[in-house]
């Protein structure tokens, strides 16, 4: 085969290989199926095919964005994590993936992007710090509006806003969903015996951020931590399939939380100096401490006059 497919995912943090659930699902699926992808961890969607993350650029330079399309593409290339499943297990897998999409996904989106405290203190901050300068000003906000729109359309309520009632409802659905998953998992290592399948990738992708991300409003995390087997399931996948992410990355993420550490330090220093200089200059100009002389041309024409200052005053 020619060059390997390239997968573009959000950078990792909090001990996870990526901070985004869709990306985690794909990374986990690729690990489980053994697909040799060239993974690019990026923080600038504009440098990815189609301007969206996650994205897959195939060997034939085609681009795919929807996680399900990417998984189908990998499956067609014989990288199938569900190869060993019986027909009934495959049916169960499809059903539980639907359950996650309907019940867990909206709650995770809400927790990260809509809940005001979580969004301002964690999500927006993370994305703004990791993006380069002009993008960090507007892209997190745009992503948030997009997620809110998605949630509104999913719920069929065009005026949906963050509220306690909505939170209770979504979190109620999500905790029910986690309970059902925990019951289905039981004491097994993976959902269908000893080897992981696409369902395991989906469960991991949507639960791991809840487990690892320290949100000010962490009700979902509390509930997940009370379900020992699901908790252990996520930790286990991280340990087996993403060993170099869990240990050294966590060290780096501590560093990120350190207030002294600022990414793009030089650019930011330069820009703030520029802004300060601009402000001082405009203040000086406006208050008349410094004035720009316009009358240069006039002064040349009337060079015979002995009072160029008067000339200036007339021009003004």
């Amino acid at each position: 085969m020619a060059a390997p497919d390239e997968l573009f995912v959000w950078e990792g943090d909090w001990g996870l290989p990526s901070v985004n659930s869709d990306c985690l699902v794909l990374l986990a699926y690729a690990q489980f199926s053994g697909a040799p992808l060239k993974v690019h961890k990026v923080c600038n969607p504009w440098r990815c095919p189609g301007g969206a993350i996650p994205a897959l650029r195939t060997a034939h330079k085609e681009a795919l964005w929807r996680p399900s399309d990417i998984i189908i593409h990998l499956r067609k290339q014989k990288y199938n994590a569900d190869f060993d499943l019986s027909a009934k297990e495959a049916a169960d897998s499809l059903a539980f993936i639907a359950l996650i999409q309907q019940k867990l996904t909206p709650a995770v989106l809400y927790a990260l992007w809509v809940e005001p405290k979580n969004y301002v203190e964690v999500t927006r901050r993370w994305y703004a710090e990791h993006m380069s300068f002009p993008l960090s000003l507007f892209l997190p906000g745009r992503m948030q509006r997009h997620q809110l729109d998605t949630l509104r359309l999913l719920r069929g309520d065009a005026s949906l806003e963050a509220s306690e009632e909505l939170e209770k409802e979504l979190y109620g659905d999500a905790t029910d969903c986690m309970d059902l998953l925990a019951q289905r998992l039981g004491t097994q290592k993976f959902f269908f015996g000893d080897s992981p399948s696409s369902l395991d990738a989906f469960v991991f992708g949507w639960l791991a951020p809840i487990l690892k991300c320290k949100l000010p409003n962490g009700k979902l995390q509390q509930h997940l931590k009370s379900l020992d087997n699901l908790h252990a399931f996520c930790a286990n996948i991280l340990l087996i399939y993403f060993p170099n992410n869990s240990a050294p990355r966590s060290g780096r993420s501590d560093e990120c939380r350190d207030p002294e550490h600022v990414p793009n330090r030089r650019t930011k220093q330069f820009l703030s100096a520029l802004a300060a200089l601009g402000a001082m200059l405009s203040y000086a100009l406006l208050t008349g401490m410094v004035s720009v002389q316009h009358g240069h041309k006039g002064a040349v024409e009337h060079s015979g006059l002995s009072h160029p200052h008067q000339d200036d005053d007339e021009d003004d």
Binding site: D92, L94, A95, F96, A98, L99, Q101, Q102, K103, D176, D179, L180, L181, Q183, R184, G186
Partner: peptide, 18 residues
């Protein structure tokens, strides 16, 4: 039982979802 109820809910979401 618990597992059957989990499966029932999952299949209901499958129908809604697809």
């Amino acid at each position: 039982d618990d597992i059957q109820r989990a499966e029932m809910k999952a299949y209901m979401e499958l129908v809604n979802n697809m």
